[in-house]
Design a protein around this nucleic acid. Structure first.
Lengths: 91, 91
DNA sequence: ATGCATTTGTCCGTATGTATG
DNA sequence: TCATACATACGGACAAATGCA
């Protein structure tokens, strides 16, 4: 059972109806952020770590992070890391 | 307002169309040298001071100084400092 | 000559950015 | 999408050269 840095099981890619690998990863991490499991200001695992966790190429992870950036969920800082920027919405 | 040792305001990096941090710093200092605001033979602020002024890592300052060396504008001397070597061109 | 502070030189590890095949 | 390579950037550590008290 593959798990990430939060100990959460990683879904099999392309077996859950997600057409694009990077989008499946982005959606998974976005869910963690929006549920508050990844705190605002906390750093994501590095692109290299994420690519190892998911068993995908680093460029695919970068594409997922770009998706998260465009959704306003994270902010990448050159040489430091990628950080959660938005709090989970109150429901 | 961040200023350097000449009292000049330092531009925000990556907001002036400069893609590279070190190049923005190199261009800024090169402009001072070429306008004669930094005299030939005068010493630049230390790498540590420059990195504090600009709010960047020392290695980034060193990359900028390397750029200035390659343009023939400065000369670094171990244990002493980095000195302006070329006069402003006559116009 | 000794120690201390300053400054450049070098190296390491990690991380993001860009480019190519 | 993968795989690789290189560039840029951060942060820290230590070495080497200089100058001064």
């Amino acid at each position: 059972m593959r798990t990430d840095d939060l100990g959460q099981e990683l879904p099999e890619i392309n077996s859950d109806g997600e057409a694009l690998v990077y989008m499946a990863i982005a959606d998974f991490v976005a869910g963690q952020i929006e549920r508050g499991e990844r705190a605002v200001g906390s750093r994501l695992p590095s692109e290299l770590d994420l690519s190892n966790m998911w068993g995908v190429a680093r460029m695919t992870v970068r594409r997922a992070i770009r998706e998260l950036r465009e959704r306003g969920l994270v902010n990448a800082v050159h040489g430091k890391g990628t950080f959660v920027t938005r709090p989970a919405p109150e429901e």
